[in-house]
């Protein structure tokens, strides 16, 4: 397993796709920080309201992006194996398919961790430089607490959002990878992922509203719904974190089990 992971990392670090993904995420983080800076300096009266702690607080809004970004990460790692027919080189050497599958899952997780750290790092650094740390008076006006407390609280909430979102990302990532392994075309797999992530919750929501409220139960276990629930929370909600882990891990386990089941029987051409 370690060899397979090392090999995937070797391949990934030699593929421009991974660097472009990192660059795009970093550029996006810079863009958001830049936009906030522009607003701060073009809206003179409330100049103190937009500052570093606020930028960190606003990160929660970006958490659902991770839910969809994992599909791009999965695509980078899976590397269109069906298009290039490279899986046969692994299978014919006798590498167990479980190992082939799980190594991709682990490396996608590693890649997404790097993407996360780089994106958050660039965003935090840019916000710090461009927006600055507010004075105690400014912090009091914005957050009703002093600067140190405001920053501490912002990071605490960031930790909470990440803790709650991580299992949801993991569930989405497992789903994306299962689809890449099951569907020959990476584009179709990507579309399938979007359909499951966006269309299915919308369908359950509407069925719950117009057909039978029992469909709400299904809607409430979708990753999209849970992600929305997380960002709408303004205080540390530990039961919610527990629910996120339960649902996220359930998605991860079921997706991986289904993906492995079909991949282990799949004809490799």
């Amino acid at each position: 397993m370690v060899n397979s992971i090392r090999a995937e990392v070797y391949k990934l670090t030699r593929r421009s796709y991974s660097y472009i993904l990192l660059l795009c995420c970093a550029a996006f983080a810079l863009l958001v920080a830049g936009l906030m800076c522009y607003i701060k300096y073009s809206a003179a009266p409330d100049v103190e309201l937009i500052n570093f702690p606020l930028a960190i607080n606003m990160l929660s809004m970006g958490m659902p992006i991770g839910l969809y970004l994992v599909a791009v990460g999965g695509d980078a790692v899976f590397s269109e194996q069906y298009k290039y027919n490279t899986l046969k080189n692994e299978v014919s050497y006798g590498l167990p398919r479980v190992r082939v599958y799980l190594s991709r899952l682990v490396v996608t997780l590693l890649l997404m961790a790097v993407v996360f750290v780089v994106t958050i790092g660039v965003y935090a650094l840019a916000s710090l430089v461009l927006l600055g740390i507010p004075s105690d008076a400014g912090a009091m006006a914005s957050f009703g607490k002093n600067t140190v407390q405001a920053i501490q609280d912002a990071f605490q909430m960031l930790g909470f959002y990440v803790l709650a979102s991580f299992p949801l990302w993991l569930g989405a990532m497992s789903l994306a990878l299962a689809l890449y392994f099951l569907i020959r075309s990476s584009n179709l797999a990507g579309l399938g992922f979007l359909a499951i992530m966006l269309a299915v919750p919308a369908i359950f929501d509407n069925l719950g509203k117009y057909v039978n409220p029992v469909f709400f139960r299904l809607y409430h276990v979708t990753l999209d719904y849970m992600s929305g629930l997380v960002i709408s929370t303004e205080t540390l909600d530990w039961p919610l974190i527990g629910r996120c882990w339960l649902i996220g891990l359930a998605w991860a386990v079921v997706s991986t089990a289904v993906g492995l089941f079909f991949f282990s029987r799949r004809e490799i051409s």
Binding site: K11, R14, R15, S16, S79, Y84, N85, T86, K88, N89, S92, S269
Partner: peptide
Amino acid sequence: VEIPSFYPYL
């Protein structure tokens, strides 16, 4: 087996 397949970008 059949046409050799490798990663095109390597």
